[in-house]
């Protein structure tokens, strides 16, 4: 395999990323050794720091500038620019790729909040292109058709930060080890069915709870079992949470879904097809934004859930699922 131009020059030890607290799982964060002299662009602190600014917020999938404006007006803390929302990718099939840079640029120009965009798993050239047009975050996403069924992108070499999906703690820590500055669940996108996202979040939290009471000897074995780098697992056990921001993604369609994921310990929520495939996108978007802020306030959740119009049509997740299970893409 040839070395990507923007990859790291040589193998490097991944830094221990910054800790973060979340509302549901508060924990102090470790000190960052930011002692470099002068201006430092694209440090891990800067990359994971943007994710910390997004916490408690909702990141919405949009396919054009008009939708991006609706999302911004509804209180989105960032938008995800893509050509087709996952529900359409699922319905239409075919190879799903990075979006047209022109479309992404139009969205960047239309809004003042951060703009994210998706690349295929392992497609580091798409990532180089997105970095060059100035997107704020890249999602190396299983929703697009993988370009590499073995290797993920080496994300350390990029100035732009990456978010990656994970189904369990081992997968999350492997992605962080590759340089991901933010993690999200890998719920089945485009189904409007939150069950997989719940499964992933519960798996991650349960493994963290287990690790947090282990001795160092036990952690060595646990790291081997879940195929995670030991130093990251040890840091996770100490923090009692993932060492980067962790969002919910995949299948979130209602304010209640969003609040559920927050109560399960997520730091924020991605909503994909759930908004612009529903009856009244602006109203639903605003309701989900409020639900994420007030996720523990059942009365307020009831208020914002009222009269939202039709939710997106959901799909059950079984062997007949059209488009197949995306979560199995990338390990």
């Amino acid at each position: 395999m040839s070395t990507p131009a923007l990859g790291t020059p040589s193998v490097q030890t991944p830094p221990i990323p910054q800790g973060v607290g979340s509302a549901a799982v508060p924990s102090p964060a470790p000190a960052r050794a930011a002692t470099r002299e002068g201006n430092s662009l694209g440090t891990f602190g800067v990359k994971s720091g943007l994710a910390q600014m997004l916490k408690g917020g909702v990141i919405m999938d949009v396919v054009n500038a008009e939708q991006a404006r609706i999302a911004e007006e509804a209180g989105a803390c960032a938008v995800m620019a893509l050509e087709r929302v996952p529900a359409d990718i699922r319905a239409e099939g075919g190879v799903a790729r990075m979006s047209d840079p022109k479309m992404i640029k139009e969205i960047v120009d239309a809004v003042t909040i951060p703009v994210m965009a998706k690349v295929r798993i392992g497609h580091f050239v798409e990532a180089q292109i997105l970095q060059s047009i100035g997107v704020d975050y890249i999602d190396e996403s299983e929703v697009l058709t993988p370009a590499d069924d073995e290797f993920h992108i080496n994300k350390h070499g990029f100035k732009v930060p990456f978010v990656c999906g994970a189904r369990d703690l081992g997968e999350a820590l492997r992605r962080i080890s590759e340089g991901a500055a933010m993690i999200r669940t890998k719920g089945e996108a485009g189904t409007g069915n939150v069950v997989e996202a719940v499964r992933h979040q519960r798996a991650v939290m349960s493994q963290i709870r287990k690790a947090s009471v282990m001795t160092e000897e036990e952690l060595y074995v646990f790291a081997k079992e879940i195929q995670a780098p030991f130093h990251l697992l040890k840091e996770t056990a100490r923090l009692k949470r993932l060492p980067v921001v962790n969002f919910a993604a995949g299948g979130i369609a209602t304010p209640a879904d969003a609040a559920l994921m927050m109560q399960l310990g997520c730091d924020g929520v991605f909503v994909g097809s759930g908004i612009f495939h529903s009856g009244d996108p602006a109203k639903r978007a605003r309701a989900i934004v409020q639900a994420v802020t007030h996720f523990n306030n059942a009365k307020l959740l009831a208020d914002v859930s009222e009269n939202l119009g039709a939710a997106m049509v959901g799909l059950t997740i079984d062997s007949d699922l059209k488009g197949g299970k995306y979560a199995a893409r990338g390990k």
């Binding site: 930011a34 201006n39 662009l41 694209g42 951060p114 970095q131 100035k159």
Partner: peptide, 15 residues
């Protein structure tokens, strides 16, 4: 001015 330095790739640390 919001986003005084531009997009995320311009973000930095400085003493």
């Amino acid at each position: 001015a919001r986003n005084g330095w531009g997009s995320q790739v311009e973000s930095f640390e400085a003493p």
